[in-house]
Design a protein around this nucleic acid. Sequence first.
DNA 1: CCCGATTGTTACCGCCCTGTCACCGGCCGG
DNA 2: CCGGCCGGTGACAGGGCGGTAACAATCGGG
Lengths: 224, 224
Amino acid sequence: MKILAADDDRDLRELIGFTLAQAGYLVLKAGDGPSALKMFEEESPDLVVLDINMPGASGFQVCEAIRKRSRVPVIMLTVRGEEEDLVRALELGADDYLTKPFSPRTLLARIKALLRRAGMENTAPLAMGRVTLDIEEHTVKIASGEPVRLTKLELRLLQMLLANAGHTVSSDRLLIQVWGHRNSGDRQLLKQLVHRLRQKIEADPAVPQLLQTASGAGYKLVVD
Amino acid sequence: MKILAADDDRDLRELIGFTLAQAGYLVLKAGDGPSALKMFEEESPDLVVLDINMPGASGFQVCEAIRKRSRVPVIMLTVRGEEEDLVRALELGADDYLTKPFSPRTLLARIKALLRRAGMENTAPLAMGRVTLDIEEHTVKIASGEPVRLTKLELRLLQMLLANAGHTVSSDRLLIQVWGHRNSGDRQLLKQLVHRLRQKIEADPAVPQLLQTASGAGYKLVVD
DNA sequence: CCCGATTGTTACCGCCCTGTCACCGGCCGG
DNA sequence: CCGGCCGGTGACAGGGCGGTAACAATCGGG
């Protein structure tokens, strides 16, 4: 599990790094916004701890940039009493925050809670009913047919639907989970992705059996 | 969206209630642990705000009991500087916490973030007498008939009537709850919506059994 | 740097949801 | 008796939403 910690305060950065390393995480450290972003691009960590006050680029900018290309869990660090900052951070897509000063134990608990919520520590069942998803190979098998190759986004979409197999998942939620942002005007992206995925996995894409539409609500995967 | 707020401080409870009601949530209030648990059992809310320090049963116990039977999002309220409490709360399965004092805006932001993370629309089918409402699928089943698809507005209307099953809901209130703010002269909208809903759920739409008219007052749902 | 794969954007079609108008019938007070 | 109010019903136009296609932009590996 790879965690990126970005903070301009060298001591705090080292403390965080030490704490997380003790807990068995692989830690990447960055001292300012730009290098945090660069490291994020190169290493694609599984979780990001981000100080709001940093030279170069504020934590907000970094968070926004990260959200543009990933839905990785983000924890923001802030000083006490800056509630406006918190609201803005959460609106920008941050998943959680910590108020300085905090104890290492608290940080660890929050990180674990977030990873648990994000479903990153339990390998979800890959097979369900007719659908068998191979995340490493980026392929699905339907019933006992040939494996079909999926793109990154298709895989992610199918993963989300499979995790909620039999239940409708709202379009907004899919947008958030697949792309990481939630401009609800972006339904066209989802339409297209669903269409392309159907071409690959449905026997007759015009009459979907697996990936069904719940009009006005979202989509659901029928696996039985 | 139903939210249970449990706090022994009456003023704070009312403030939370007012804030959430303003934001359009249906709020249930409890003043101590046991009644919070009881209300949780009976109402199955979509999110719980839980004060750690309560008479009867501590927030910890309530949180633990809730976690034994549900994964509903839980936000814990705590006083400043009790970090051990926070860690324990998160380990017990709480999803988030707030340090008192907090601003209403912060509370709202955290609740929204949590609902978003939790998927916001995954409410279990709501059953009452002959009527079973599946909010995530946008469908109703009457008695043991086939599920009928509902539109957004029909769903909202039925939801409101079902929440007050057996009691008359005034037309003005329905107008506000279904459409938002409207001048009360807009009864035609409601007439049409009721008519369309009856076509879908009544055995004989000309003689309504379920969705009955309370002349001069409003409508009520008869489920038994 | 190039080519193909992948992803995002624009446009269009068809369905049906929704708001609105128009009309009917019953009830009530003048 | 009649005119107004209320609730129910039918019809219809506009627009929103989902599906599809075609194209542009971007990514990624050789």
